[in-house]
Design a binder for these strands. Sequence first.
DNA 1: GTCGAGACTTAGAAATATGCCG
DNA 2: CGGCATATTTCTAAGTCTCGAC
Length: 590
Amino acid sequence: RLLAPVDAPLLIWTSRPTPFLSLALRGLMSWWEEEKYEAGIKWKFLEHKGPYFPPEYNPLPENLNFYYNGEKLKLGLRAEEVALYFAQMLDHEYTTREVFRNNFFKDWRKEMTLEERMLITDLEKCDFGEYHNFHKQKVEERKNRTKEEKQVLKEANQKITDEYGFCMLDHHRERIGNFKIEPPGLFRGRGDHPKQGLLKKRIRPEDVIINCSKESHVPEPPAGHQWKEVRHDNTVTWLASWTDNVQGATKYVMLNANSKLKGEKDWEKYEVARQLKSRVDGIRAQYKDDLKSKQMGTRQRAVALYFIDKLALRAGNEKEEGETADTVGCCSLRVEHIMLHDSLDGEKCVVEFDFLGKDCIRYYNKVPVTKRVFKNLKLFMENKQPGDDLFDRLNTGMLNKHLSSLMPGLTAKVFRTYNASITLQQQLKELSNGEDPPEKLLSYNRANRAVAILCNHQRAPPKSFEQSMANLQAKIEGRKEQLTLAKAELKKAKKEAKGNSDTKLQFVVEKKKKAMQRCEEQLLKMEVQATDREENKEIALSTSKLNYLDPRISVAWCKNMEVQLDKIYNKTQRDKFAWAIHMTEKDFEF
DNA sequence: GTCGAGACTTAGAAATATGCCG
DNA sequence: CGGCATATTTCTAAGTCTCGAC
């Protein structure tokens, strides 16, 4: 375990607690300048108002009807509410899926009265049309709200945030990340999820555990209700929790990313990754050596580590079958997920990966590997069925146990952080040659993009992508014409001014020149933007920026390149990375 | 060693806000 | 100044990893 980040300013000031404490107490110090608590203790004082509950169900107007088999039918309140969840989603592809429909129907029937259940036995015979239209109408109304109405709503929301969105943690007033209890609805899993469509039930105060300090004012449950439990556990960071009925998982109310608790953890994460930097050569030498081991388990571990390091694959924990979509990571790869090519496209020993990873995002890649890795893979695949585990003698527990013996704090995911950050740093060095601001930004985005590609961070292309590209192209053409015109005018003005000492004419030349240059600049800016956008069509940059790239690399780059920080980090991101912005100098090296 | 619960980070989609252009 | 594209925020699912019971 790390006690303190490697090159952190001196944090442990136990020898002079008084001035330190008073500053901290008065809120004059930033958290990254404060002393840390002993291992495992996350806070000494925690006070909050409890989570915010969504409004109760508001019954539909009397005149709205549901039809079963063409017959008008008045549903009871509970059945009506759940039916509306489904009706609201009718425009979504989800509601056409067999699994979604069956799951919904099964759970919906549980909410029905006995009579309703006797009657309604076939989802195909259900007509939610009026519910659906009612919902669409509501959405339309929401869209058409006047400025004044929007303002009123905004203020009401702000009031809720002011009251429930903050807590006191030690001497800091901190923003809470998700202080709103998740509203009920139909479960929307990603990809081919076996539980899609199941009813996600309404959470009541009786389901919620509150965590706060003993000496704090315990939050009041909503009128007429009780909390499930109030506990005072300062070894955890959550303020409230409940169990989700669909997956049986615990959900938490936690602090915002700009908080002390989250920030410290983030900082520590990058410090561990930097430690890996200085040890990675040795670790690579070792797993290369392990490829020859007599122990099959060791060899499998070595190949897995090779993939995790080279391709930034996730660890790949086992998953409970039938509970989630069928996705894999490194350790859970199956024989069917890779194909071996002795030679492909002029390269030798090529492994072709094709599998669904986290969030059912497809990982597809063709990678040349070393002979030894290739031979090992052949061996691991011998006499196996497509559905068998590739690494049958390995799991994430064993892998991480081994890693933590190589370096304290080292786990599989540290390689992702390390490789992402080091790639950004290298790319920024290679790509940036002092140019115009838009070109510098393009370089930054390209470096970011290299990381996003490494980590396989994808997105659905924006709906209006083609249109917006075409618009931009048209604008570029327009600007080009304008530039030609501007150039011609400049030439003309120069000609007129030549051999003429009239300062007025000289002045005109200057003016035309400026106009031409401005035009040129704008054209360049647009062309750069077009390139950037095209390259970014199916790549999501935000995930790596937020979770994998040591912000100090970016802050140092901005300082060196004289780029405004807000060109690469928006307000939220600057808040989250305040610690890095505060402490980073030009010479920072990851 | 194995297993499941628990706690926390990482993820892309969807909703909402912003701002730009005619 | 309104409509639309883009940027930001919100939402919550889906991972990783640790720990304690057996």
